[in-house]
Nucleic acid binder design. Structure first.
Lengths: 197, 197
DNA sequence: AACGCTAACATACCGGGGGTATGCGAACGG
DNA sequence: CCGTTCGCATACCCCCGGTATGTTAGCGTT
């Protein structure tokens, strides 16, 4: 049966990405050897360098993939609400819950900033989850629900808070930790509410 | 003139630490080659492996050093105030200001979690800046100034928020960014205040 | 339908750098 | 004063990322 080149290409690319994602999540970027990823994907190093230009290139693509999925999950959770305030809360909670995914933890939160460099990581983050957060905050400012202020510092503060909290929750044995964190986050968010007029 | 062994040992150790710190801050962990650090310190790789068991070992010691200094700076800033609430604010502001130090940024905030592993990084963080934060929060809970609640989730949220904000501030060209971040942080902190009784 | 061309890999090789095993001289203790 | 040990230097290994080159099979062209 004739396998077209395009099909073959897509197949190996998918296999490399899937295997890379698994290993990056499990062993961390520097714990992964590229040749083994290729071998597990049924090809050799040459194929990996043909599709992605370097080990970091493969990692970058995996990061983009995971980030896109995370952004969609967060957006979907927010969209289940109509009230903009509840949208913000739902998005934040979805992000915290996403921390239970090892791929998100290890790849996005731990390795990505140092492997890709903080600047590139931030630029990519901006296009997915952080953008949703910034938009939600701007909606709330426009609606007069939170005080008029630049949203960028707020975005960074909240983004960092949730990144760290997600990592912590992943290690926490306590069953109440998630609920407690959500409560604490609610308190902090409430501080942003504009004083009643 | 007789140079005792203890003196010699201490001198090389200091030289390696100083040079390592410079390079780790400038080039990042993986951009640093251990042999060059040793050469710049006037010794060879052998000396480095004699004092620290590995490249990561040297890095770990540098991390501990930088973290201790940071903890002291934060504590000193807090101690200039009597009111516990102002102590918390001062500590947070000192931490944000510390982000202007490249050593803190690159070594502590970017590389340390992935090089040492998130668990070990967190354990070390716990012993310096995070501990001060947790203690300040517990004081505020005990004084009834913020609502009674577990302080650990709060600590992680705030710690993460300030880590990320410090990194962002370092890249921000805006002169107002620091002031805006401090304002936003104040809002979030105010959300924690216990409702007036 | 034969043929050159190129895409999609495989194979072979290089070099840098972390780690280690061993050597050696100079302080130290008895 | 002499053996011992400490504080390194030297020489070496080898893993792994990267590259240069070879090879086969699909594809458009006449």
């Amino acid at each position: 049966m004739a396998v077209t080149r395009a099909e073959q290409r897509a197949a190996t690319r998918r296999a490399l990405l899937a295997e890379g994602r698994r290993r990056f999540a499990a062993d961390g970027y520097h714990g992964v050897v590229l040749a083994e990823v290729a071998r597990a994907a049924g090809v050799t190093k040459g194929a990996a360098y043909h599709h992605f230009q370097s080990k970091a290139g493969l990692f970058r693509t995996v990061v983009a993939e995971v980030q896109r999925e995370l952004g969609e999950r967060v957006a979907a959770a927010a969209d289940r609400h109509d009230d903009p305030w509840e949208q913000l809360r739902a998005g934040c909670r979805a992000f915290l819950a996403a921390g239970s995914d090892p791929a998100v933890r290890r790849i996005l939160l731990v390795d990505a900033p140092t492997v890709l460099g903080w600047d590139e990581w931030r630029a990519m983050d901006e296009e997915s989850s952080a953008r949703h957060l910034a938009e939600a905050l701007e909606d709330l400012v426009a609606a007069g629900i939170i005080a008029d202020q630049p949203v960028e510092p707020l975005t960074r503060l909240l983004s960092g808070a949730m990144n760290e909290a997600a990592l912590w929750l992943a290690r926490s044995a306590s069953t109440q930790a998630l609920a407690q964190t959500e409560q604490a986050l609610d308190l902090m968010l409430n501080g942003l509410r504009a004083p009643a007029r």
